[in-house]
Design a protein around this nucleic acid. Structure first.
Length: 480
RNA sequence: CGGGGCGUGGCUCAGCCUGGUAGAGCGCCUGGUUCGGGACCAGGAGGUCGAAGGUUCGAAUCCUUCCGCCCCGACCA
């Protein structure tokens, strides 16, 4: 029995995560480029799945894909005061090109609100040009000091939606619509339950009027901001002079939104479902939903088993692992670590009995199935795994959510929680949306994740910092 | 940027203190026997010891400088 290459979650959650990413062949640190990673085929295929699911929803709500330059004139960032302040510390700047010092440096986009704002200004003149609903699939660079694969890397892949509207109502509607899309993909496709809510003013996007987020809970109880949608108001419209003439003939600034999810989602996916044996992928995102491992000893068995294996695999859409010189056991471990949802085992015994063994990744259970019934059973099982993963994650989130009615209580609950040791909780408490309150939480490395759009608790109560009455409880947690 | 750790075959590391012919396990290649949860035997390939400089008859080992990576903190999708 070989030693597991994966650190147990209970021992060191952060080490476990790294091991799962590496052993699952999802990505590896680039090493030669600070803070960057190489996304490997198994990981990129998951990203392609997410792209597919998101993109079709964007298109269904009338968004069109576009592409803006990677390089943005430095002065653009400075046009929106809050925006530049928020992003300046983490910019990578190109100062030399073509062997010459540039007159004006370019920043490598950390996000594209500014350059989009510039072009919106050129493109939008009339109420007839609105709404303008664009999305961009791109890479961005943010010079983060502390990186973790998928969760925070210097360069990452994402999509950023940018829209312009003639009224604030319409923009807000868009902001919330896209938040819903994110929640739907997170829950229905990734099987990752999330809480939709509004960020506090202290935590909002630099340059937004209001930011909304979906927050997920990882297995160590830490929160992960899985997607954000921003109501930008007229901030960028004014900064980039994006005006249109209304039906009434008035010149007005547009109301904008922006929204994004990134490859960070993959990190969330991993930390939501995977176990001590490695990666666990939900069927709807698994690049390979089923692998068939043939088992044989003698050459004549080999021929018979492989013939049946390929026939059945073709029928059910499975990949046959017919690599020679690898024992079945080694193959089981191989696919288990890669998160493949279902594995079929077919050997001489099964050929004799007309059965095939179906093993599922989420529960580890094995079940012999009549070969004639395997296609249907497999479809059912994959659907059941998808449901089960979501249910499990949802229950875990519920079990690790607690109420608190004082700052001391919150601190006591979250004091010892860390990414490595775990112990995190979602603490539901009344807290005023005031930077002063956020600052108090920060003293013990905790933040308001969001104020849920739907209050599932007890309505108004007294703020744990100021004592003032606030409308409902917010999610307080340690986060990535 | 502050504190700590580490750079030696593809990977994980030993060797360094006390200078003297570069090692192990895993992986890889070849052949054979195996195969229902990480098989075994035999043979084999593979290393400018992070870089530069210095000390020395002689440096992976001692000294200096530099580079990179990881962890902890401040920053964050």
């Amino acid at each position: 029995m070989a030693e597991s290459p994966i650190t147990a979650r209970a021992q060191d959650f952060a080490a476990w995560y790294q091991d799962v990413v590496l052993q699952g062949d999802m990505a590896e640190p680039a090493e030669i480029v600070k803070g960057c990673m190489v996304i490997k085929p198994n990981g990129y295929a998951v990203w392609e799945g997410l792209q597919r699911e998101l993109d079709q929803r964007f298109k269904a709500s009338n968004h069109q894909n576009v592409y803006f330059p990677l390089l943005i004139p430095q002065s653009f960032l400075q046009k929106e005061a809050e925006h530049v302040e928020g992003f300046a510390p983490e910019l990578a700047v190109v100062t030399i090109a073509g062997g010459k010092e540039l007159e004006e440096p370019y920043v490598i986009r950390p996000t594209s609100e500014t350059i989009v704002g510039h072009f919106f200004g050129k493109w939008i003149h009339s109420w007839r040009d609105l709404p303008m609903l664009l999305n961009q699939w791109a890479n961005v660079v943010r010079w983060e000091l502390r990186t973790r694969m998928f969760l925070r890397t210097t360069e990452f892949l994402w999509q950023e939606g940018h829209t312009a509207h003639s009224t604030h109502e319409e923009a807000l509607e868009e902001t919330l619509r896209m938040l819903d899309v994110y929640a739907e993909v997170a829950e229905d496709i990734m099987a990752m339950p999330v809480i939709k809510g509004v960020k506090t003013r202290a935590e909002k996007f630099a340059g937004a009027v209001r930011s909304y987020s979906i927050e997920a809970m990882m297995q160590n109880g830490l929160a992960l901001q899985a997607g954000t949608s921003h109501d930008l108001g007229q901030n960028f419209g004014k900064a980039f002079d994006v005006q249109f003439q209304s039906k009434e003939g008035q010149l007005e600034y547009v109301w904008q939104t922006s929204w994004g999810v990134s490859t960070r989602l993959i990190g969330g996916l991993i930390m939501t479902h995977s176990d001590d044996k490695g990666l666990v992928l939900p069927p709807k995102l698994a690049p390979i939903p089923t692998v068939l491992v043939p088992i044989y000893r003698k050459d004549e068995e080999r021929a018979q088993v492989l013939e049946a294996a390929h026939r059945i695999a073709k029928e059910v859409g499975a990949k046959v692992d017919d690599r020679d010189g690898q024992s079945p056991g080694a193959k089981f471990f191989h696919w288990e670590r890669r998160g493949v949802p279902t594995v079929l085992e077919l050997g001489p015994r099964d050929l004799a009995s007309g059965k095939i063994v179906l093993k599922r990744r989420d529960t580890g259970t094995k079940e012999p199935v009549d070969q004639t019934a395997i296609a249907g059973r497999l479809t059912e099982t994959l659907a059941d795994i998808q449901t089960n993963l979501f249910t499990r994650a949802k229950e875990r989130m519920k079990a690790n959510t607690v109420l608190a009615n004082s700052l001391e209580e919150v601190e006591l609950i979250l004091k010892d929680a860390t990414a490595e040791r775990g112990g995190g909780k979602f603490v539901m408490a009344h807290i005023k949306d005031d930077p002063v309150c956020d600052a108090r939480l920060k003293e013990f490395k905790t933040t308001v994740r969001n104020i849920p759009l739907v209050d599932e608790y007890d309505g108004p109560g007294k703020c744990i910092v100021t004592g003032e009455t606030v409308a409902q409880r917010a999610v307080i947690a340690k986060s990535y």
